[in-house]
Every structure is written in structure tokens, then in C-alpha cells.
């Protein structure tokens, strides 16, 4: 798989979670890539649902960063 194809796949995974209402809650930059923790707020007292993606490609790391900035600005655009 080319790096571009891998980027497209990772971008789709990020978009999928954001479209389901997840928000980026934590990012850990590591030697192996960026570990991005997503959480979906629940309306009940249950623990929020968490998902974790290991983002490997540089373009996908740029992509979630753009989404994070938009999230911080309260302006998530998909």
C-alpha cells in the first residue's frame, strides 16, 4: 500500500469517528506515530465511549491536527 493510500485510509478513519460525534480528547506524540484518543460524550451517566487511532502518515497527522484546531475553535467542519 502506498503512503498516499494509507493516508486516505487513516483520514477516513478520522472522519468516521468525527461524523459519529467523537471529539479528539488527547494526543500522544510518540516514536511510532501519533496516538489520538477520541471520546464520544454520552447523555447518560455512563462512561464516554473511547476510540484510539494510531496515526502513522504525515498527511493524516496534519489532517487530524486541522480537525483539532477546528474543534478548539468550536467549528468542526466535515
Amino acid at each position: 500500500m502506498s503512503e498516499h493510500q494509507q493516508y486516505v485510509l487513516e483520514r477516513e478513519q478520522i472522519d468516521d469517528l468525527l461524523q459519529k460525534g467523537y471529539k479528539i480528547k488527547k494526543v500522544i506524540e510518540s516514536l511510532s506515530g501519533d496516538i489520538v484518543q477520541f471520546e464520544q460524550d454520552s447523555n447518560t451517566e455512563e462512561e464516554p465511549t473511547k476510540e484510539i487511532l494510531l496515526i502513522l502518515t504525515p498527511n493524516a497527522r496534519k489532517y487530524f491536527s486541522v480537525k483539532l484546531i477546528e474543534q478548539a475553535q468550536g467549528n468542526v467542519q466535515l
Partner: peptide, 11 residues
């Protein structure tokens, strides 16, 4: 710099 500032705020 913008990216790292956003990550810093988040974490």
C-alpha cells in the same frame, strides 16, 4: 506552531 499550540491546549 499552531498545531503544537492546539496539542498543548488539548493535553
Amino acid at each position: 506552531n499552531e498545531r503544537q499550540a492546539a496539542l498543548g491546549l488539548l493535553n
